[in-house]
């Protein structure tokens, strides 16, 4: 789906207003707001200009969102130790490692089932954003569908009787 120019403009203003936030938090905030807009438009059931304007109006001005994010204490101190509870800061844990092992080694030893269980672990992890999980799911789904289609075509052509005969 192509991003509406109004939404693009809004996200641009949000990014500009978030200049004092760390790069990863700024990017994540943009993704969160984008997801929120998409969800609100999906709930509204229409994507026209009026619906987009309504959603953006309800969200408030980008500067207000950033002010709420930064809080009354001002921008976060970049020299401060990272918060280990912040999913953007923490490193991979057991769930993420299991997910990656199932997607890679699991796909070799447990074809079809391995990657699918791996995706369950991916979705249960808070390490990746919803969009990133969605992209990983689409990658697996598309390649598995191609495999299944290839197998179906292969077995279909094998089942066909031989019509040409050598003399």
């Amino acid at each position: 789906m192509e991003t509406d120019p109004l939404v693009r403009d809004y996200l641009g203003r949000l990014e500009a207003a978030a200049w004092m936030l760390p790069g990863d938090r700024r990017r994540e905030l943009g993704e969160e707001v984008h997801e929120h807009i998409d969800a609100a438009l999906a709930a509204a059931g229409r994507q026209d200009e009026v619906a987009v304007r309504n959603v953006l109006e309800r969200l408030g001005r980008p500067e207000e969102i950033i002010a709420a994010e930064v809080g009354p204490g001002g921008p976060p101190n970049p020299t401060q130790a990272p918060d280990p509870a912040d999913p953007a800061r923490r490193s991979m844990g057991g769930v993420e490692i299991i997910a990656l092992l199932l997607l890679t080694i699991g796909a070799i030893f447990l074809p079809l089932i391995g990657p699918l269980i791996g995706l369950v672990f991916v979705w249960s992890s808070s390490y990746w954003t919803r969009n990133q999980k969605l992209v990983a799911t689409v990658i697996v789904a598309v390649l598995l569908l191609i495999t299944i289609a290839g197998l179906a075509v292969g077995s279909g052509s094998a089942a066909q009787p031989q019509t040409t005969r050598s003399m």
Binding site: A136, I139, L143
Partner: peptide, 30 residues
């Protein structure tokens, strides 16, 4: 014994997704 090339897509599907997830994880930590 030969393996149908289409079977290779099964591990490739998981590996491609795993590479993507590791890449976005590393990019975020930078």
């Amino acid at each position: 014994m030969s393996i149908e090339p289409v079977y290779l897509l099964i591990p490739l599907a998981g590996i491609a997704a795993a590479v993507f997830l590791v890449a976005v994880g590393l990019r975020r930590r930078r």
